[in-house]
């Protein structure tokens, strides 16, 4: 059971809604993934190009909406985007994303922190997308964020958990849920994150850019189940040397005597 901001979810997967060919494809992938939380972005209405309605179909399948502040270059813009999203959706959840650099889309920790501080004061449930920095996580936790969302590797890079060492520290020390966000490229990356004890994983490109998106969504659904079960079961420890799984008595020699 995943507990976030006072709500409970059976699935530990959060899906992003970008890069799908249609709203229908997105909904089918979302259903196949089993995810009960989905992110989306706030933008000015595009008066020239048609875009598929995504909010209503996601609400119809019972998904919790987690709007983000993607596109914000600083705290002020992130706060503005968050308030627009709340006004539009009547949802007080916000994934705070401030990444001024478009090449790597790495989050700006100072602007993110400042935005979180203001939004928490304003009553938002805040989910910051951040570098995998344990100290920053602690500072955000002290502010009152609802979870932390450290990155595994750059958004859409599919490079997996490059920040593994720091993620382990964050998971070990955090008192708020840890959502591994960004860079998860394949189901085994998600399994690894869950085995480490991550509370949730956020996946977008790995599903939306897969050959068969629905099949990949199912694979991630199974990955989150396997990874969480393994974590709850408790992994067998590692060792440098072998540990026999069969009796080592010299049965043949004894039988020949």
């Amino acid at each position: 059971m995943l507990k976030l901001a006072g709500r409970e979810f059976n699935s530990h997967l959060i899906v992003g809604t970008g890069k799908y060919a249609s709203g229908e494809q997105l909904v089918q992938a979302c259903l196949a993934s089993g995810a009960q939380i989905a992110t989306m972005a706030v933008k000015r209405v595009d008066t020239e190009h048609h875009t598929d309605e995504i909010v209503k179909p996601l609400l119809e399948i019972g998904v919790q909406l987690m709007p983000n502040t993607s596109g914000a270059k600083n705290a002020r813009e992130a706060v503005f985007a968050a308030k627009l999203a709340r006004e539009a959706l009547e949802v007080d959840w916000i994934k705070v994303e401030v990444h001024p650099d478009v090449k790597y889309l790495l989050p700006d920790p100072l602007e993110t922190y400042a935005a979180c501080k203001e939004l928490i004061k304003d009553g938002f449930k805040v989910f910051p997308y951040i570098p995998a920095d344990p100290v920053l996580c602690r500072r955000l936790e002290d502010l009152g964020v609802s979870a932390v969302m450290p990155l595994g590797s750059p958004i859409g890079s599919a490079r997996g958990l490059e920040t593994l060492g720091m993620l382990k520290i964050i998971i070990a020390e955090s008192h708020v849920p840890v959502i591994i966000d960004a860079g998860i490229g394949c189901p085994s990356d998600a399994v690894k994150a869950f085995e480490l004890g991550a509370d949730a994983c956020m996946v977008n490109t790995a599903i939306a850019a897969a050959g068969d998106k629905i099949l990949m969504a199912k694979a991630f659904n199974l990955a989150q189940q396997a990874g969480r079960l393994a974590y709850e079961a408790g992994l067998a420890g590692q060792s440098e040397t072998a540990s026999p799984t069969s009796p080592l008595e010299a049965f043949l020699k004894e039988a020949m005597q």
Binding site: M40, A41, K43, L84
Partner: peptide, 26 residues
């Protein structure tokens, strides 16, 4: 501008109006 105020909010010459919605994103 909160929605509850829209019915009373009169647009005036030179105002900059922006309307936002939610779109696909990660």
């Amino acid at each position: 501008i909160p929605k509850r105020s829209w019915a009373e909010f009169r647009l005036a010459d030179g105002m900059q109006v922006d309307i936002f919605n939610l779109v696909a994103g990660g």
